[in-house]
């Protein structure tokens, strides 16, 4: 149904507001190279038809992305991605860092760790290297 390139998955039980989820998913898609400059984001109506969210929320998320300079609204045409967030390090399945992380995950699983253990380890290490105060 979508003519745009990405589809939003809104998790109703996450406690994270719909607006934040949309912003995060666009950013993530841009980092992973799924959205590149010139791509059109789905229109509010397209998002509504696919996921039954409030179109005002979609527009608000797009405004936030525009404020961050990631996208640009063109009158009558839609909202387009203007910059690139992807880099060699994050794009594609064979990016070196991704490969290393995949290897680590594989070992964790072999070692009998469950998903909660993995999440806890990951968050703890992440917070060591990216302290909360420094994050935007």
């Amino acid at each position: 149904m979508l003519t745009g390139v990405i589809e939003f998955r809104i998790d109703r039980r996450s406690g994270v507001s719909t607006y934040v989820q949309i912003v995060q998913q666009v950013r993530q898609a841009m980092r992973l190279g799924l959205l590149n400059p010139g791509d059109r984001l789905p229109s509010a109506r397209e998002v509504v038809e696919a996921t039954t969210v409030n179109p005002n929320t979609v527009l608000k998320a797009y405004r936030e992305l525009e404020r961050e300079g990631l996208v640009e609204a063109r009158r009558g045409l839609g909202t387009f991605v203007t910059t690139s967030l992807s880099s060699e390090a994050t794009t594609g399945d064979d990016a070196p860092l991704r490969r290393e992380l995949a290897g680590w995950m594989g070992r964790a699983r072999e070692g009998g760790l469950v998903v909660e253990d993995v999440d806890a380890l990951y968050s703890a290490v992440r917070d060591e290297h990216y302290p909360a105060e420094e994050r935007p």
Partner: peptide, 14 residues
């Protein structure tokens, strides 16, 4: 319920 909400939200979008 989903069908109905979608119609209402589409109305808002349109």
């Amino acid at each position: 319920r989903d069908e109905t909400l979608r119609i209402i939200m589409t109305e808002v979008a349109d």
